[in-house]
């Protein structure tokens, strides 16, 4: 709290989550995170998982929080139980980080129409704004997901084929694009999206995920 802030007569921002619960989420410190996927390490270097990926100098990912038990519970309730109110927990954190990335273009990972039909919202755009899939930008090729990524093993996830296409009216030529997703696990999904954008002429792609 500062004097200029006091004199600005803004309303006191009420915390969405109580301090005790907020402490159960572990923030990742960028100074000691993996340079490629944003995972929390002891010093800034490339983690063993990223060394197994073919090198892609025009893409890297940033993550805000470690995927721990608290984050697991959060996604269980927000995404799978469908408690849309919980978007407020991380909306501010995501929007703040997104603002610092100074992107020319922001793309959210879409959900399939079938998921939209029963979940009723896109968990990523829930944090950023409307809660709907972006009208232009990335699109899912499949109408439904046969099996969600979260139920597959690492090997199965890595062999997944490109699930996205770009809408025809969408151009990213020579732009700095930020792709936003919820969780970076193996990196398969977000790297598919990044490949697609780079192929269509993007200058560089930064991934931003809530959890790693």
């Amino acid at each position: 709290m500062t004097l200029p802030w006091l004199l600005s007569w803004q309303t006191w921002p009420h915390p969405v989550v109580c301090p005790t619960c907020w402490q159960t989420f572990e923030r990742i410190t960028p100074a000691t995170a993996c340079i490629s996927c944003g995972r929390q390490l002891t010093r800034r270097q490339m983690c063993s998982d990223c060394q197994r990926w073919p090198s892609q100098p025009r893409f890297y990912n940033q993550a805000l929080f470690c995927y721990n038990a608290a984050m697991h519970d959060y996604f269980q309730r927000y995404k799978f139980q469908g408690d849309y109110r919980l978007r407020a927990v991380f909306a501010a954190a995501m929007q703040q980080r997104l603002a610092t990335l100074a992107a020319d273009c922001v793309v959210a990972i879409p959900v399939t129409p079938a998921t939209m039909q029963y979940r009723g919202f896109n968990q990523v755009t829930g944090w950023l704004g409307t809660g709907l899939n972006d009208p232009v930008g990335l699109q899912t090729i499949a109408q439904t997901k046969a099996r969600p990524q979260s139920q597959k093993t690492r090997a199965e996830r890595l062999t997944t084929s490109q699930p996205f296409s770009l809408s025809s009216t969408f151009t990213v030529t020579n732009q700095r694009v930020v792709i936003v997703d919820d969780i970076y696990t193996t990196g398969r999904t977000i790297r598919h999206a990044a490949d697609l954008l780079l192929e269509s002429g993007a200058k560089s792609v930064i991934g931003l995920t809530l959890a790693r």
């Binding site: 469908g82 849309y84 009723g120 919202f121 896109n122 409307t130 809660g131 709907l132």
Partner: peptide, 8 residues
């Protein structure tokens, strides 16, 4: 409120 004038 859910998006697109839906409720839960």
């Amino acid at each position: 409120q859910l998006p697109a004038a839906q409720f839960y």
